[in-house]
Amino acid sequence: MSDPDFSWHGANASLTMPVDQTAGPWLQPSIVLCLLAILLLASSLIANILITISILCFPKLRTNFNFYLLNIAVSDIIFSVSSLGNFCPLTYYGYYPFSSGACTAWLYSEFMFSAMTEWTMAMVALDRLVCISWPMFYRKYQSSKYSVIIIAMVWIWLHLLILPSILLDRATLPDDAASERCSIDYHAHPGWLITCVILVFWLPETVTITAYIRIALKMRSRKKFVDTPSSNSLDSDFRQGKNEEQPLRLEGIAKSQTNYAVDTLSTSMRQRRPNKDRKAFRLLSALVLSVIVFCLPADIYYFVAALDSKWATHVFYQLATFSTFIHCFLNPLLYHAYSEDMRNAVKSLFHRSS
């Protein structure tokens, strides 16, 4: 199909960028889009590398929550590198200049690591929901090893969904078409692709939003209750006047002082825990909002293309792709903005290098 701006044959097949004869060489649409993509992806690459190094180098950051963020950062790094080497040449030349094998690798990267980010966000939301809803269970059974196992299971799950779809599509594509285009043929296996898109992209979005709403409701209900420190036995005796009626015993005083110290420590821990949960909730809120705003266009694009490829215009594709680039760039900024420990770790990296 064609539109006033682009000649778009099939779904993501080949494109012809318009050339403005009155504009200078640096103002051509293809060059402008390439420069924007390079700026976003290079910034995303550097920022996510800093986050990855910080989590790996500082033991304080190796928490369950941060292991999920590490997985997102690694996925964004690989996605950025792959897009720099493939999306920019495609946009500049107007066709895919590399081999069919390189195209297959890019399609794998584009689907796999976009989906990995969304599925990891779902795991983050579920992790926070368990922490808020069943704190004793969470502290007893959750560990870094548990988080790594969950992440590994997500990797296996996504490979089982994505790899067959891509390999099946590339295997049934004629050789001449495989060398000229770099996209999924949505006409060939629509039922399989629709199912895959729902499971890969829409299911984690639904899980993330549902878990976040549950967390928000529980956090709101917590504000209605104010934890008051329980009184120790010595304070209780003074309030009831028992100290005037009973003889003073040294062992009773020692026991009361011990109870007071334990109670004070318990109160301090109870006060720190909600504060820590609130900070994690603020970061989670920012991450969920980022996923909804910047990943939803790509999710809609893939679903619409699977339903009817004529709707998958190039303008739609560019919007969805650049939204994903912005999301990759925004994630590490949110980690840095909402996590004091992350900020201190990044600062320490620069202090070490200086």
Rank of each mutant, 00 (worst) to 15 (best):
M153P: 04
L168K: 13
C182M: 05
S100R: 09
C103Y: 09
P297Q: 04
I300H: 00
L15E: 05
I326G: 09
L107C: 04
P247W: 08
M342H: 09
T52I: 15
E244P: 04
L307R: 02
F67M: 15
A171F: 12
G10F: 02
Y138C: 02
E110R: 02
T117S: 12
L163M: 00
I209A: 08
I253T: 00
T267K: 11
F113Q: 04
A320C: 06
Y138T: 01
L193S: 01
L319Q: 05
Y96C: 03
C34D: 09
P229G: 08
P29F: 10
L70D: 04
L173D: 03
P97G: 05
R214S: 12
L289A: 15
S80A: 15
V304F: 03
I292S: 08
I194L: 10
S256R: 10
M342W: 06
S7I: 14
K218F: 12
H159N: 13
A280T: 03
W155T: 03
F316I: 03
Y146C: 02
P204N: 07
I53T: 11
I149G: 00
V262P: 03
P29M: 05
S100I: 03
T104P: 02
L250S: 07
I292K: 06
R270S: 14
L45Y: 12
R214D: 11
G85Y: 07
L168I: 04
A306Q: 00
P332D: 10
E340D: 11
L40K: 02
W192K: 00
A11Q: 08
R273M: 14
S266C: 14
S309H: 07
L319A: 13
L56I: 13
L158R: 03
V74A: 05
K310M: 06
H9M: 13
A105I: 05
A152S: 12
G252V: 09
L41T: 14
I300K: 06
C88M: 12
Y317L: 13
R170F: 08
D176V: 02
H336V: 11
S83T: 12
T324H: 05
Q246F: 12
L35K: 07
L248C: 06
H314P: 04
I194N: 04
S183W: 06
D235P: 04
A188P: 02
G191F: 06
R249T: 10
M136I: 10
W119C: 10
L40G: 07
W202Y: 04
N259D: 15
R128W: 01
M136Y: 01
A216H: 12
A47F: 14
A286L: 11
S143W: 13
D20W: 11
V124T: 09
S354L: 13
V154I: 14
V200D: 03
